[in-house]
């Protein structure tokens, strides 16, 4: 795993986590090297680059786009992307009539296989409390102005469905390759707090 702040004395939390890990490991309930691998997996293979591939393919392949909107989980799995917190995926498309944005007001549910682990702001009380109530103000703070004739639709991930936004393809990007398009797709665009 990547190294963090190694020179500081161990915090109370660091000691607590280590103690619980050791005790559970001694009882055969967790495997420390398994924990190493899990961390490494999320630091290397799982992240918004996966979602970006999905979006780029949907932009270039109308049949794939249709499959993605029909059954997100299966279409995403076509690209070998699946796993924890992505077992039941719904992809919602931004159009000329609707701008979608995703939140989990109750905890911080987030589609890990396509977007990785959530940023702090997504998990924070200000975002969770405000985006359902004043989404247009929140979106403006993120730099997104949604015209008044476009519906803002907020998806509160309150159950076990995980949502990803399919952003509108930017003007002038037709004809680019899937790889080039994937480079243009951002994590925030797939949460719905940015346009691409």
């Amino acid at each position: 795993m990547a190294s963090h702040k190694h020179n500081e004395p161990e915090s109370d939390m660091a000691l607590r986590v280590k103690a619980i890990e050791q005790l559970l490991s001694e009882k055969g309930l967790v495997d420390p090297t398994g924990i190493d691998r899990l961390i490494e997996l999320y630091e290397t293979r799982v992240g918004p680059h996966n979602g970006a591939r999905v979006v780029a393919k949907a932009w270039t392949d109308p049949d794939y786009r249709a499959r993605l909107l029909e059954n997100g989980t299966d279409a995403i799995a076509e690209l070998d992307v699946s796993g924890i917190q992505g077992e039941n995926m719904v992809v919602v498309e931004n159009t000329q009539n609707v701008h979608n944005v995703v939140v989990c007001t109750l905890c911080s549910c987030y589609p890990w296989p396509v977007l990785g682990l959530p940023p702090r702001w997504y998990k924070s009380p200000p975002y969770r409390s405000r985006v359902v109530r004043e989404p247009r103000t929140v979106l403006e703070e993120f730099g997104v102005e949604v015209p008044s004739d476009v519906e803002v639709r907020v998806w509160d991930s309150s159950a076990e469905i995980r949502y990803m936004v399919l952003p509108s393809q930017p003007e002038g990007s037709k004809g680019k390759s899937e790889e080039e398009l994937a480079e243009m797709v951002t994590r925030d665009g797939m949460i719905g707090v940015a346009t691409v």
């Binding site: 795993m1 990547a2 190294s3 963090h4 702040k5 190694h6 915090s11 939390m13 660091a14 986590v17 280590k18 619980i20 890990e21 559970l24 309930l29 967790v30 495997d31 398994g34 924990i35 190493d36 899990l38 961390i39 999320y42 630091e43 924890i84 990785g116 682990l117 940023p119 702090r120 702001w121 924070s124 009380p125 200000p126 975002y127 409390s129 405000r130 929140v138 703070e141 993120f142």
Partner: peptide, 27 residues
């Protein structure tokens, strides 16, 4: 709850123990 605070170049984990806590909880 105030303003939404975003972090530039946010790391995946903010400390080693956060990474351990994540993997430990899943296991």
């Amino acid at each position: 709850f105030g303003k939404i605070e975003r972090e530039e170049n946010e790391p995946l984990f903010h400390a080693d123990w956060e990474a351990r806590a994540f993997g430990l909880s899943l296991q």
